[in-house]
């Protein structure tokens, strides 16, 4: 049989088409995951804040300790007994160190040396996020200054940027220093920075932050600063409101009332 050039091309073309059919069909019939459900808008319109009633705190010191222990237990914060390597999300410091701009020669004696509970201020204009080269820390729409431990490269610029010392660095594997690991929250690894996350994982489940829930004296009030009828906004009425170093312009969202 004479095999013409035209005939050869036809057969070759059909053969290639036949060979391409199976992979082509696989591309078209590929299992595609459906889009995840649309985001419930719990970020929008909210601005989470915290009010700490110092008068109530000073009446019951053990409640402060309860708040700190609960937070650290829930978030797998290791207890490392060294000032350089310690990890803290919430802790206490003296009144005069918390509010240095309020200290003068005639301060009421009762304020001096009193311990004040401090945590990440969740600043409205956070300096830490501006330093982060990988966007591992950023301000969410609801005002929470978040940490993405997956992205943190451990450069510690954010720690240099934070004027409140709210951030801690994991100089070593923290796991051996955790008394009892909470499975619900990951531990951290060597070489990442961590800080208070305003219990965003609890907020997403409709729970209050651990430090608020842990205490019975209601000295810490948490809520939406944008809502004029919220408990937190009502707590401001008729009280003297303090912020930590407001002159720095970071606009802390953790307020103190005395």
């Amino acid at each position: 049989m004479e095999f013409s050039r035209r005939g050869f091309l036809k057969i070759a073309g059909l053969t290639f088409l036949g060979l391409a059919a199976k992979p082509g069909w696989e591309v078209i019939s590929k299992v595609k995951p459906s889009e995840s459900s649309p985001a419930p808008n719990y970020f929008s319109g909210k601005k989470w804040g915290m009010v700490i009633d110092l008068k109530k705190c000073w009446e019951a010191k053990e409640e402060d300790i309860e708040s700190i222990n609960t937070c650290h237990r829930i978030h797998n914060v290791p207890s490392i007994q060294s000032i350089k390597e310690e990890i803290k999300w919430i802790w206490t410091i003296e009144y005069e160190k918390t509010f240095p701009e309020h200290i003068h020669d005639f301060n009421e004696e009762e304020y001096k040396g009193r311990s004040v509970i401090v945590l990440c201020n969740q600043c409205d204009d956070p300096p830490c996020t501006k330093y982060c080269p990988t966007r591992a820390t950023w301000k969410r729409e609801d005002g929470i200054v978040m940490m993405d431990f997956h992205r943190c490269i451990g450069c510690r610029y954010c720690m240099a940027g934070c004027p409140y010392g709210s951030r801690s660095f994991n100089w070593r594997d923290p796991r051996p220093f955790i008394k009892k690991v909470n499975l619900e929250f990951p531990t951290r690894t060597k070489g990442v920075v961590e800080k208070c996350n305003f219990c965003e994982e609890r907020l997403s489940q409709g729970l209050l932050p651990a430090c608020v829930e842990a205490r019975k004296d209601k000295a810490i009030i948490f809520g939406d600063l944008n809502d004029p009828h919220s408990e937190i906004r009502r707590a401001f009425h008729g009280r003297h409101i303090l912020q930590r170093q407001p002159e720095l312009g970071t606009k802390p969202k953790v307020f103190y009332i005395v």
């Binding site: 459906s34 995840s36 985001a39």
Partner: peptide, 26 residues
């Protein structure tokens, strides 16, 4: 991971319309 950490979306709707919590541990 991106969805939970960056966007705060924690529920995954699978292709069979079932819903799952996006969590490695849980």
């Amino acid at each position: 991971r991106t969805s939970v950490v960056r966007s705060g979306i924690r529920i995954y709707q699978a292709s069979n319309k079932k819903k799952y919590t996006m969590s490695l541990n849980r």
